[in-house]
Design a protein around this nucleic acid. Structure first.
Length: 202
DNA sequence: CGGCCGATTATCT
DNA sequence: GATAATCGGCCGG
């Protein structure tokens, strides 16, 4: 697992370094895992796109707590989205996990949701991966560094920074500038993830 | 492949 | 009462 210090930093520093790491979920003691291929950073009350922009509320309060806890919230009336809290307490920040490349527990993922496309694309969206991993608000606030945690992150691929592309965040609606165009989304191509996962036999 | 659109309800004003 | 850090289906090219 990673260290507390890794997460005790601003989200725009943590988010690109999470690309290539392995997200692991224990469901009834069985491992589900995927290589993180896409993330977004939400940093502080200043950031108009960040839920913490409006101050502390019941929904976003875990973002005001210690880093490395899971922030899992409900949206669009039907979807759960997984974030990892970062930065120091009282500096609300989080990294949204937007996509992972499936590597362990594919059978269980298929039971968790109806799977349509080919298996490599099963978890290529923030709400798809929570469904495939069986994640809901039940795990909101869970410490991802505790040994008995049901969700945590392990080292995965070692990637050169040159493979990681950044661009503006997605789905922000009428968020004002400069936040709308802030290049706080990071990703690696599926082809690259596929090649590296096979080469390193993950 | 790309764009548009409806679904569905917790959360906040 | 309005909005939402999305998804999948349906359309046209």
């Amino acid at each position: 697992m990673l260290s507390q210090a890794f997460f005790d930093r601003p989200a725009p520093l943590v988010a690109p370094e999470l690309i290539g790491k392995k997200l692991v979920r224990l469901q009834n003691g069985k491992r589900l895992a995927g290589i993180i291929t896409e993330t977004e950073a939400y940093q502080g009350q200043e950031d108009s796109a960040c839920h913490a922009h409006v101050g502390k509320t019941k929904r976003n309060e875990v973002m005001f707590g210690r880093a490395a806890t899971a922030y899992i919230y409900f949206t669009y009336g039907m979807h759960w989205l997984l974030n990892i809290v970062t930065d120091l307490p009282d500096m609300p920040a989080a990294v949204l996990i937007r996509a992972v490349f499936p590597v362990e527990g594919l059978e269980l993922m298929a039971e968790n949701r109806p799977m349509l496309a080919d298996s490599q694309k099963w978890l290529n969206g923030p709400a798809k991966l929570t469904q495939g991993f069986g994640l809901t608000g039940a795990l909101n606030g869970q410490d991802m560094l505790r040994p008995e945690s049901e969700i945590f992150i392990e080292e995965g691929l070692i990637l050169p920074q040159s493979l990681i592309q950044s661009s503006p965040r997605i789905g922000l609606g009428k968020t004002p500038e400069p936040w709308l165009s802030m290049p706080w989304r990071w990703e690696i191509s599926w082809q690259e993830a596929y090649n590296r996962v096979n080469k390193e036999n993950l």
